[in-house]
């Protein structure tokens, strides 16, 4: 017995509201980040990821308040991604109660930003988010802008470089699988997880609870992230843990 594999629900937040149809049957306000976070906390989520998809920079401050509210009521780790462009953005999120920030496009545009962020705030709070697409047999490339823009950067090399620059964790999303419900890209996940010394979170494509277990067993992921499978109320985090435990994966039981 030792370190548990983590299950991480991911919430998209637009102008302070949870979007993409969270549909718990008995929830009062499915758009309220605090309400949703509290629900996942009760179900045994090991961490939460909030992705700020707010388009307008005027609304950025809204996310700070969301994080403050959630962090004062839910006592599990919180990662905030989206719109992290300056060191001051990181400071603001950490002060609000986030434990980690996810850096994606800014890292691609300016890899030194990751180094500076890790030096200033410590590797433990710097998560580099990688969106990758398969471009050949056993080859994946980094894409930005929701998978529309190719960068020509090899995904495995990039992950190694980011860990070397000080990323404390890699959040890896397969753009081929995202939204498909066909399961994680296990070859990609394994390739990255075996190449970097830091933990890797698998993301993109979960359609069944067994996909989560596959991500750990075949993908060698340290944590598994999913959104819709939990949001629509079909499955709870606890059910996911039961399935993973039945396949021999160590998970955290929730004591009450």
């Amino acid at each position: 017995m030792s370190l548990a594999k983590r299950i991480i629900p991911c919430l998209d937040v637009d102008e302070g509201r949870v979007v993409k149809g969270v549909q718990f049957v008995d929830i009062l306000d499915a758009g309220d980040p605090v309400e949703v976070a509290r629900r996942y906390d009760e179900q045994g989520a090991d961490e939460l990821v909030f992705l700020d998809i707010t388009a307008s920079s005027d609304e950025r401050e809204t996310m700070v308040h969301v994080v403050e509210e959630v962090a004062s009521q839910v006592f599990i780790p919180l990662t905030v991604g989206g719109g992290i462009r300056e060191l001051s953005d990181i400071r603001r999120m950490l002060n609000a109660g986030a434990d980690k920030v996810g850096i994606n496009t800014t890292a691609v545009n300016n890899p030194e930003f990751v180094r500076q962020a890790a030096e200033r705030f410590g590797s433990q709070c710097i998560v580099v988010a990688i969106d990758a697409k398969q471009v050949g047999d056993g080859k994946w490339e980094i894409f930005t802008h929701g998978g529309r823009s190719a960068t020509g950067i090899d995904a495995v090399e990039w992950a190694v470089k980011m860990a070397d620059y000080g990323a404390g964790e890699i959040l890896l999303t397969s753009m081929d699988r995202d939204g498909t419900r066909d399961g994680y890209d296990l070859a990609l996940t394994r390739a990255i997880s075996e190449a970097v010394p830091v933990p890797v979170i698998a993301s993109g494509g979960v359609g069944t609870l067994d996909h989560l277990a596959d991500g750990v067993i075949d993908g060698k992921a340290d944590a598994v992230l999913a959104a819709s499978i939990f949001h629509f109320g079909h499955h709870t985090v606890q059910e996911a843990k039961d399935v993973m435990a039945a396949r021999g994966i160590e998970v955290r039981a929730v004591d009450v």
């Binding site: 017995m1 030792s2 370190l3 548990a4 594999k5 983590r6 090991d46 590797s123 433990q124 404390g168 964790e169 010394p197 830091v198 933990p199 340290d222 944590a223 955290r252």
Partner: peptide, 23 residues
């Protein structure tokens, strides 16, 4: 951690930072 883990063959593949819920 990494310095210590390197001396323990059985710890091969353990990630650093040590991150998550442990006993």
């Amino acid at each position: 951690f990494a310095d210590q883990l390197r001396t323990i063959p059985a710890s091969n593949g353990l990630k650093v930072p040590h991150m998550g819920w442990n006993q």
